[in-house]
Computed example of a mutant assay.
Amino acid sequence: MTIVVTTPTGHVGSRVVRLLIQAGVRPTVLVRDTERLGEETRRRVGVRQGDLTDGAFVRAAVAGARTVLWVDPTPHTSPEPVEASLRTAEALARAAEAGEVDRIVLLSSVGAEKRGGAGHIDGLARIEQRFEATGVDVLHLRSGYFFTNLLASADSLACGVLTTTTDPDRPLPWVDPRDIGDVAAARLLNDDWRGQGVQAVHGPEDLSYRQVAAILSEVLDRDIRVHHMSDDDLRAVLRSAGLRSGAVEGIVGMAAGTRDLVPEQPRDVVTTTPSPLAAWAYAHLRPVLH
Rank of each mutant, 00 (worst) to 15 (best):
R18D: 13
R18C: 00
R18G: 03
L19N: 10
L19S: 08
L19C: 05
L19I: 07
I21R: 11
I21Q: 06
Q22W: 06
R26L: 00
P27A: 00
T28V: 07
V29K: 09
L30D: 10
V31N: 09
R32C: 03
R32M: 02
D33K: 09
E35T: 15
R36M: 07
R36Q: 14
G38F: 11
E39I: 04
E39T: 14
E40C: 02
R42W: 05
R43A: 12
V45D: 03
G46Y: 06
V47W: 07
V47S: 04
Q49A: 12
Q49Y: 09
G50C: 04
D51W: 04
T53G: 04
G55L: 00
G55C: 01
F57C: 00
V58Y: 04
A61K: 01
A61L: 00
A61N: 02
V62Q: 04
A63M: 04
G64M: 05
A65Y: 13
T67K: 06
V68T: 11
L69C: 09
V71W: 05
P75Y: 12
T77W: 12
T77N: 10
E80I: 07
V82M: 08
V82A: 10
R94Y: 08
R94L: 09
A95T: 09
A96E: 07
A98R: 14
E100V: 00
D102E: 15
D102I: 02
L106H: 15
L106Q: 14
L107E: 13
S108Q: 09
S108L: 05
S109K: 04
